[in-house]
Computed example of a mutant assay.
Amino acid sequence: MTLLTDSLVVDGVRLALRDRGRGEPVVFLHGTPSHSYEWRDVVPHIEADGFRTITYDLLGYGRSERPVDRDTSVAAQTDLLGHLLDALDLDRVGIVGHDIGGAVGQRFAVASPGRVRRLMLIDSVSYDSWPSPTWRRIIDEELDDLPGMSQDAFDALLTRQLEMTVADASLMTGDVLRAYLAPHRSAPGRASFFEHQVRHYDSRYTEEIGDGLGRLTMPVRILWGEEDRWQPLHYAKRLRDDIPGAELVVVPGAGHFLMEDAPGRVVREIRDFLTAPPR
């Protein structure tokens, strides 16, 4: 399905966007290597529950603009989130962030706690948890050579990585796999992947806010796939221990792309979290 149906120019750049519903606003932030496609089996259900959902491709990802001279780091994406909320005239929102989207959510909550009503982190990068060992090797040994690789070689590399994101490998095949590969099915798309995503796999963006997590006061729920091979469960437990009052929910039989392994469970957890009385 096509989840994102609109676009909006924010701070001089174009973001592919879905903005539906009239209830309490909730922003969905995707991870990497990914785009908003990962929310296709989640967001429509939350909309149907009466929430206003804002889902967009991060700058340099998916169908959003891929500028050649614009910072697309986690820090820059956090600033852009603030500009997006301003453009939509939204003062306070719930945030659901996956992977690096979780890092954007963490940074935004630490910097602008008054604008975050609730925060859910799904298999989020944190502290020094990223890049994963496989991505670190690629960055250290191959990064400068990767943009020039053939499409077949690129597809093989990214497919190997995407297959690690699910506990059930059969889920990352066919049309689903093709959808994750689709934004990079060209030379500019491959170059953009490395320049806008991989070059910014840098844990300093989460390490530098570690102390700030202890000052968060909004409700926080951490949702984690027990079999996540990129973000080990002990990081989820550390987040739970460092964020006052945070809840941790572990999903057995699920990996890093929890929305692929267990979309129904993700919907139920988000629904429960968004409707729980604020503490």
Rank of each mutant, 00 (worst) to 15 (best):
R107E: 07
A16D: 10
T217M: 07
H184V: 05
E260G: 00
L15S: 04
T173R: 15
L162S: 10
S34G: 08
G21L: 03
Y56I: 06
Q197P: 00
R271F: 06
L119V: 12
R52F: 11
M172P: 06
W130M: 14
D152A: 15
D168T: 07
P252R: 14
L233K: 03
V266T: 13
I209L: 15
E142M: 02
S132I: 04
L88G: 06
T78F: 07
D202T: 04
H200N: 14
S7D: 15
D175F: 01
G105K: 02
S124L: 03
F273V: 10
D57M: 13
D6Y: 09
D6I: 10
T206E: 11
P113N: 03
I122Y: 01
A187S: 11
Q151N: 09
F154T: 03
D242E: 15
D86N: 10
G62F: 05
F194S: 02
G23Y: 04
S203R: 14
T206R: 09
G62C: 05
D202G: 10
L3M: 15
A191K: 14
R115T: 05
F273S: 12
E195F: 09
L258F: 07
P25Q: 07
M259C: 03
F257A: 12
H83C: 00
L216R: 06
R185L: 14
L4V: 13
I100K: 00
H30F: 03
V116D: 11
A191Q: 15
R52S: 09
E195H: 14
E260Y: 12
L84K: 00
V26M: 00
W130D: 06
R70I: 14
A87I: 00
V110A: 04
T173G: 01
E227C: 01
T217R: 15
S126R: 11
A167Y: 12
R271P: 03
G105V: 04
R20L: 12
H98I: 01
V96Y: 01
G210Y: 07
F257P: 00
L274G: 08
V9T: 14
D242T: 14
L81A: 09
D71N: 12
R279G: 15
A167P: 00
G214F: 13
L81M: 02
L213D: 02
E24P: 00
E38W: 02
V68N: 11
L119A: 10
R117Y: 03
G105C: 07
G94Q: 01
E65N: 08
A191Y: 08
L248T: 05
R22I: 08
R66M: 13
R271G: 13
Y37V: 05
